[in-house]
């Protein structure tokens, strides 16, 4: 995939930060608003795919190491499993929500009914959203990059 014109590059430059912020917002507020790790990760990767289209695959291959993406994917999966086993350890149930209502990190219990959203709620759900978000960003970006690599002539990885 070769790079595109200056118009496309400028548009991508303007849109990229907003796409990133929106995707990270959807991941971070997964326990309050619609969305979560999967959806926010897909939004972030769509911003990265925008860069890939605008700047060409060789520009991205120079800056992204596939080993690091693999490490991030493994990190997300290990974090997800670790939180699940911590639930088994602290609340005797696999995927148990041991932080909910504990008063510590993300431990506030919201009042029943329709109330104002509080970021410091949800127990392990925000942490799981974050782990899944990292996993989805790395996994989908690897898919997009490998498909771009298959159509390019440059050596990578």
């Amino acid at each position: 995939m070769s790079e595109m014109t200056k118009i496309v590059k400028t548009t991508a430059n303007i849109l990229f930060p907003f796409t990133m912020i929106f995707g990270l917002y959807v991941i971070a507020h997964g326990h309050l608003t619609p969305g979560g790790g999967f959806q926010g990760g897909a939004i972030v990767v769509s911003g990265c795919a925008l860069l890939l289209v605008a700047y060409g695959s060789s520009w991205v291959f120079d800056r992204i190491k596939d080993k690091r993406l693999a490490a991030f994917e493994s990190l997300g999966a290990i974090g997800f499993i670790t939180i699940a086993f911590l639930g088994l350890m602290f609340s005797a149930v696999f995927f148990g929500n041991f932080l909910a209502g504990s008063g510590s990190l993300f431990g506030t219990t919201p009042a029943t009914g329709s109330t104002l959203a509080d970021f410091n709620t949800g127990g392990v759900l925000p942490l799981m959203n974050f782990a899944v978000g990292v996993k989805v960003i790395a996994g989908l970006f690897v898919i997009v990059l490998v498909m771009a690599y298959a159509s390019s002539t440059k050596e990578w990885g």
């Binding site: 326990h31 309050l32 997300g76 219990t109 029943t112 959203a117 709620t121 949800g122 959203n129």
Partner: peptide
């Protein structure tokens, strides 16, 4: 809201009540 401390019922189902299902989804992505 009492059990998971979450305002978002969908996320509480996906990551808490049906967390095992989400583990399968992550495996599918892998």
């Amino acid at each position: 809201q009492n059990e998971t401390g979450t305002q978002n019922g969908v996320t509480s189902v996906v990551f808490d009540y049906r967390g095992f299902d989400t583990l399968g989804e992550a495996t599918i992505l892998f």
